[in-house]
């Protein structure tokens, strides 16, 4: 029995000690596996500016929903005895030329401005993704024609046709949204197209094809899902620009009509008063600038966080 001659020691149970449960995994060096989203969140949190931006945006969202609901004043409630009042306990940010409470008006304006921003982003997302995906996936002549249309529209300053559309349709929430979307879906389409064009050449797409997946399944279940990162970043970048366009239009006097008000309208109403009541300009201006700044920070942060190569 040569092969069993390991040692002369006789093994008995007493020689062994039962291991503590906690030591069972002592050999494991891998840390807990995390999903893509958990990774992204971890990277996002490391970017202090992006985090501050996110917190600010959330506060702004909550305030603009809650303040008009709980405030004793309404956005169009006039008080002719209190015109251009300064900051006080009754009116935290003062009142405007009709004695309307500035805080409520700014937060109410925030609802409209943010709504325009997010609605424009969502619409551009759907139109742009479908257009870009089809163009990138079909390639060839289809792609050429579809992209020429985008190029042609791109070479005209977008503000010109946004103004045209709003003037033609009349200034209201809907026409501003349509006008703004007319420009932003193109960014999204270009982004998605270039993503789809690189991804469709990769092996997983070929594998899906070999397994018999239909074209639309490959496109929507594989290619678009895999380009989600850049798509989300583009969406976050669209929101501040849409808010800017709305403010620009309102500033030209073709924005949301009185007594309703967006941040742009508020700045426009007060711009004649810069030398007499500058604070009435400063509040809406600050609201727009800080919101756009935080959205840009969030976009930058997301761009880094959602890029799997930057692990």
């Amino acid at each position: 029995m040569e092969e069993n001659k390991v040692s002369d020691v006789t093994l008995s149970p007493e020689l062994f000690e039962k291991l503590d449960d906690s030591e069972k995994n002592a050999e494991k060096i891998a840390y807990e596996s995390s999903t893509y989203l958990q990774d992204a969140w971890k990277r996002f949190k490391q970017n202090k500016l992006a985090l501050i931006g996110l917190i600010f945006l959330l506060i702004m969202l909550v305030l603009s929903i809650v303040v008009p609901m709980i405030s004793p004043y309404t956005y169009d409630g006039q008080d002719m005895t209190l015109q251009h009042a300064g900051m006080s306990m009754e009116h935290l940010l003062g009142t405007d030329k009709f004695g309307r409470d500035m805080l409520v008006r700014i937060m109410y304006g925030g609802r409209i401005s943010l709504a325009v921003g997010f609605a424009a982003a969502v619409i551009s997302l759907f139109v742009g993704v479908v257009y870009g995906a089809i163009s990138g996936y079909c390639g060839g002549k289809v792609d050429m024609v579809m992209m020429r249309i985008v190029d042609a529209m791109y070479s005209i300053p977008d503000m010109l046709y946004v103004i045209m559309v709003v003037v033609a349709m009349g200034a209201n929430f809907f026409s501003i949204m349509i006008g703004v979307c007319l420009t932003f879906w193109m960014d999204m389409a270009r982004q998605v197209r270039s993503q789809v064009m690189t991804l469709k050449e990769q092996e997983f797409s070929l594998a899906a094809f070999v397994l018999g997946a239909s074209k639309s399944r490959i496109l929507f279940k594989h290619l678009i899902i895999n380009s989600m990162g850049p798509i989300i970043v583009t969406v976050t970048m669209i929101v501040p620009r849409a808010i800017f366009y709305e403010a620009f239009l309102s500033f030209l006097g073709i924005g949301i009509a009185a007594p309703q008000a967006s941040w742009g309208t508020l700045a426009n109403d007060a711009k004649g008063l810069v030398s007499t009541y500058p604070m009435e300009v400063i509040w809406p201006v600050l609201a727009i600038c800080l919101t756009m700044l935080s959205l840009n920070f969030i976009g930058d942060g997301l761009g880094d966080a959602l890029d799997p190569k930057k692990k």
């Binding site: 403010a247 700045a267 810069v274 500058p278 201006v285 700044l293 840009n296």
Partner: peptide
């Protein structure tokens, strides 16, 4: 970052208030 986040006309208003008024 400030440059892309602050709309030009708002910057103009801020400048007028601070430097002009």
């Amino acid at each position: 970052t400030i440059g892309v986040s602050v709309p030009s006309f708002l910057l103009a208003l801020l400048m007028i208030i601070v430097l002009g008024v």
